[in-house]
Structure formats: structure tokens, C-alpha cells
């Protein structure tokens, strides 16, 4: 059976395909639903969802070699840019749109988020929390752009162009009138509850309009 059955109860989250946020996403997605994964990579998560949750799994990925990998494992992926790749889809075509660790890399994150909630009934958004204490400490102590485990890149070759915190996402959701149905905060394999804006390394939100 899946390794994702009880992430909500204990303080520890097991991994799915080597990632704790995948374990959370795997738990959120209801069986038999339609799922679109933005930036699906080689389709590992989608393949898992198709096999274990019987979902209709589709993906978008911009890197051609990863698209080939995804299609080779039977995932309906197509090569495209998530910034404008959603516009062809009709409204509410999917039950879930997944955006895992990519929001901070998009050029226009608000447009992407709005499109996600046009095309999907719900959005699952996972992102690294720029408000984590280690990020704050890194910047405070070094005086340079933060570099740590969460944000390992030098400022000049980082794919991350829009840094956001747990607090930022919640504020945006409020401003956009979105309902946050579920929120998960992770530090390593631990779920954290206290001061998530300071303690969460990764946040996973389930939102709807």
C-alpha cells in the first residue's frame, strides 16, 4: 500500500518517491479524479497517482528530455510552458492542478495561480518557504542573498525569481478571495504547526476559489 496513509496524525511524514511534499500531495488527491501536474518532470508523481489512485493523470513539462521520460512511463505529458500552457483548456477541466516547488520560478505567479483555479476546481501548491529561520539567518549573518539547503543556488543562476513565504501566500489567498482547505507545513520529514512562517521549510496548500 501507499506510504502516505497517515501524514496527518503523527509528526512525521513519510516520503513518496523520495519527497515529503509528494507524500502530502498523494494523500490529498482523491481517487478517480482528473489531475494536471504543472512542471511534471519525468512524471513520477503522476504515474504513482495513476497506479495507486486511479486518477486521469496529465502533465506539462518544458524540458524536452523530461517530457520523453514522462511519456515513456505512460503519462500523458506534453512539452509546453506553464505560463501560457493552460490557456487552451476549458474552465474546470480538472479536479486538481498541482504546482509543486515551481510557483517561485514562474514569471507571473499570480496569473499562473488564477489560471490554475480557472482550469481546475482545486489547486495544490507546494513551495519552499522563504520565511524559514535559516533563510533569515543566512541573509542576516552573511549580508548576501540567502544560500542554504532550501535555496542552494547563487543569486545569478537561481531558477527562483519570485520568493514567497507562508505568510505571503496566505495574504495573497485572502486578497484573491481563495479558500484554503488544507495547509501542511514541513521541516524535513516533520510536520510543524507552531510559527510555520518561521519553522516550515516547505508549505503545501490546497486551495479553491
Amino acid at each position: 500500500m501507499s506510504a502516505t496513509h497517515e501524514p496527518r496524525r503523527g509528526p512525521f511524514v513519510r516520503e513518496l518517491l523520495g519527497r515529503s511534499d509528494y507524500a502530502i500531495i498523494g494523500d490529498i488527491v482523491e481517487p478517480g479524479t482528473r489531475v494536471l501536474d504543472l512542471g511534471c518532470g519525468e512524471g513520477e508523481l503522476l504515474q504513482w497517482l495513476a497506479e495507486n489512485k486511479n486518477v486521469d493523470a496529465r502533465g506539462i513539462e518544458i524540458v524536452a528530455a523530461k517530457v520523453r521520460g514522462a511519456i515513456s512511463r505512460g503519462v500523458s505529458a506534453y512539452q509546453g510552458d506553464i505560463e501560457d500552457g493552460l490557456e487552451d483548456y476549458p474552465d474546470q477541466a480538472f479536479d486538481y492542478i498541482i504546482l509543486s516547488q515551481t510557483l517561485q520560478e514562474t514569471r507571473r505567479p499570480l496569473k499562473v495561480l488564477r489560471e490554475m483555479l480557472r482550469v481546475g476546481r482545486r489547486a495544490i501548491v507546494a513551495f519552499p518557504n522563504f520565511g524559514h529561520w535559516s533563510v533569515r539567518a543566512s541573509m542576516l549573518l552573511s549580508g548576501g542573498a540567502p544560500r542554504n539547503k532550501l535555496f542552494p543556488h547563487d543569486w545569478y543562476d537561481s531558477p527562483n525569481i519570485h520568493f514567497l513565504t507562508v505568510h505571503d501566500f496566505e495574504s495573497l489567498a485572502l486578497k484573491e478571495g481563495l479558500t484554503i482547505e488544507k495547509r501542511y507545513f514541513l521541516a524535513g520529514h516533520r510536520r510543524v504547526a507552531m510559527f510555520p512562517n518561521l519553522t516550515a521549510e516547505v508549505a503545501v496548500f490546497l486551495v479553491r476559489r
Binding site: 524536452a64 520523453r68 500523458s76 476549458p90
Partner: peptide
């Protein structure tokens, strides 16, 4: 073709091979 299929929410995989 792919865009038209997406517009109907058809199940489509697409890749441009080098």
C-alpha cells in the same frame, strides 16, 4: 492539433523530438 485537443480536454501527450 495538440492545442485543439487540449481545448476539448482530450487526453494528449506531445513531444517534439530532436
Amino acid at each position: 492539433i495538440v492545442r485543439a485537443l487540449r481545448g476539448r480536454n482530450c487526453d494528449v501527450a506531445y513531444c517534439e523530438l530532436p
